[in-house]
């Protein structure tokens, strides 16, 4: 599971994440939903240990990411929004490298299975520099799942994927949750959140505007059949009215 408490990230005078609290529990898909610059990717980068928080903490599978990074990262699989991989390695070699890095037993068979599931077996012996964006994104999923992580963190999962692969990723997220794993994803695509997430955290300007299941959020806006889109707009407008002037801006996202 992931536990985020009092998370703050400042870049000089700019506050990208401003006191975020959230929990992603075992057996659920939690979606961070918000517009560009809401602080979603920054939250995820702190959760994966790519950047350090200015205040607060993140625990992954019970381990503090800042204080026990090796143990926390052993339980984590991460798919970034931009699939930068080692271009001179082949797809197979990349998975072999990550298998060795993480000490995965039976890595070869697992790699074979994931490559097969994402339709990459045919190009497994080609260098990654020859892959299309979508192929790289699929390979990143294979890499993140190779060690069967307790927690899967995905930043904008559908970027660059063809419809078939997008459907596969949706299924995959549900499968992970049903197997008792935790999935945390960020997206600005409301339909992705609505279709795959058990719970949704609405973020705006670095803060949590609301969180809960779809029915809980509907109750909050007082409309039993409201779509997530209208819930999101209502709640973020409420937050904007409460916090004027805008308190934060996000940084350009980095891998």
């Amino acid at each position: 599971m992931i536990e985020v408490r009092g998370l703050v990230k400042r870049y000089g005078r700019l506050t990208a994440v401003d006191g975020v609290d959230l929990d992603a529990r075992p057996g659920e898909v939690l979606a961070l939903l918000g517009p560009n610059g809401a602080g979603k990717s920054t939250t995820i980068k702190i959760a994966t240990g790519l950047i350090r928080p200015s205040a607060g903490h993140v625990r992954v599978a019970g381990f503090d990411v800042a204080r026990e990074p090796v143990a926390a990262k052993a339980a984590l699989g991460y798919v970034p929004d931009r699939p930068y991989l080692y271009p001179k390695l082949t797809g197979r070699e990349l998975l072999r490298f990550l298998g060795r890095l993480r000490g995965v037993s039976g890595a070869e068979a697992r790699a074979e299975a994931w490559l097969s599931r994402f339709g990459l077996l045919e190009v497994q012996n080609e260098r990654i520099e020859a892959y299309s964006h979508g192929m790289r994104q699929k390979l990143t999923f294979c890499a993140a799942l190779l060690h069967d992580p307790e927690v899967l963190v995905i930043d904008e999962p559908m970027v660059g994927l063809d419809p078939r692969a997008a459907l596969e990723v949706r299924r995959l997220m549900r499968e992970r949750a049903e197997a008792g794993r935790t999935v945390l994803l960020t997206t600005h695509q409301i339909d992705v959140a609505q279709e795959t997430a058990d719970r949704v955290v609405l973020m705006d300007r670095g803060r949590v505007a609301a969180q809960g299941t779809l029915s809980e959020l509907r109750q909050r806006v007082g409309s039993a059949d409201a779509r997530l889109e209208s819930i999101f707009l209502t709640l973020t407008e409420e937050q904007a009215a409460t916090h004027d002037p805008p308190p934060s801006h996000d940084r350009p996202s980095t891998p």
Binding site: R100, L101, E122, Q124, N125, E126, A130, Y131
Partner: peptide
Amino acid sequence: TVRARRDPTSRPAAAWERPLARLGPVGAV
């Protein structure tokens, strides 16, 4: 873009990699 050949053969790691692989993560890098 480099043309991706269709070669689905799953090959084992090269022989020269095996002694280095025994060094664990350092060898992997």
